[in-house]
Design a protein around this nucleic acid. Structure first.
Lengths: 149, 149
DNA sequence: TTATAATAGTTTGAATTCAAACTATTATTT
DNA sequence: AAATAATAGTTTGAATTCAAACTATTATAA
């Protein structure tokens, strides 16, 4: 059977498929969180994952990277601060901005959480080449460029 | 500048980029909704958009297509029923299942909403070929196949 | 310099999202 | 057929999400 879909329909399907992907990531990570009894959520884990690569960034950067509203980020950072996994520090260069730093507790969690993230992405990309994923990314980036105009 | 990213990093970035794409779609459609003063939300519009292509499907299919939980779908359909845009009908073939049908009011809205959706996806895919988008979709589908295992 | 615009973050309230536990119905095993 | 598993939908409660209006600060224009 050959289903012919127009380009708009494919774009829509692409959005759906990545939503599905996100669902699987959530399911896997939620399972690990439950098994290992870590006091965290999927959304908070996404933020920590970025801080493990780049510590001390402001909330807007975290909002951009996770594709969330800045007010959602305020809420999520509050939640991480309550758990004593990060701290907010006013940026001395720009007092509007607050830099988010991992605490000792937050850093310690990396040993546990880091491997989960590596594992699930390795599983996702099994049998794919870097070039292929890069190509897919490029397409989506072009669509974003179009939409920003 | 050449930034070399590993495949897992690219996959993550792909997830982020489609999240960004969704944000633009939301912004555009929210703007139209406000301008034309239609009593609807972005999420409800996504459901109607699917019903315009395929009316009389059950809630689970709508949940799958929008990559949402089935309980979220119950809530959203409730909201559409309240607005008298769709009705729930028990499936005579399977009494567990409820089929969702557009009402006259729901159908009438297509004249207004339909073009918005066409327009925004046309804009998104400007300068791209069907083959390119298809290719990107294929990659994401492969990742989903990997994750389902 | 002063006025204006842009940016970072917060707060609020309403909408949405999700997992978990549940009921009802249908499909599959034994 | 009876027991068991799987599926569709609902309900609940807690977490997340978003827009809008707001404050504080920095950047840009006049």
């Amino acid at each position: 059977m050959t289903t012919t879909k127009n380009i708009a329909e494919l774009a829509r399907e692409l959005g759906r498929a990545t939503g599905e992907m996100r669902m699987y990531l959530r399911q896997y990570l939620d399972m690990q969180i439950r098994l290992e009894e870590v006091d965290i959520t999927f959304e908070l884990l996404e933020i920590l994952a970025y801080l493990y690569r780049k510590d001390g960034v402001n909330q807007q950067e975290l909002a951009d990277i996770t594709a969330k509203d800045k007010s959602s980020m305020t809420y999520l950072i509050d939640s991480l601060v309550k758990r004593e996994m990060v701290t907010r520090k006013e940026d001395p260069q720009d007092r509007r901005s607050k830099l988010i730093y991992l605490t000792v507790k937050g850093k310690r969690l990396e040993k546990k959480l880091g491997p989960w993230i590596v594992e699930i992405y390795e599983k996702a990309t099994e049998g794919l080449t870097t070039a292929e994923v890069q190509q897919a990314l490029l397409i989506v980036q072009k669509m974003n460029d179009n939409l920003r105009k």
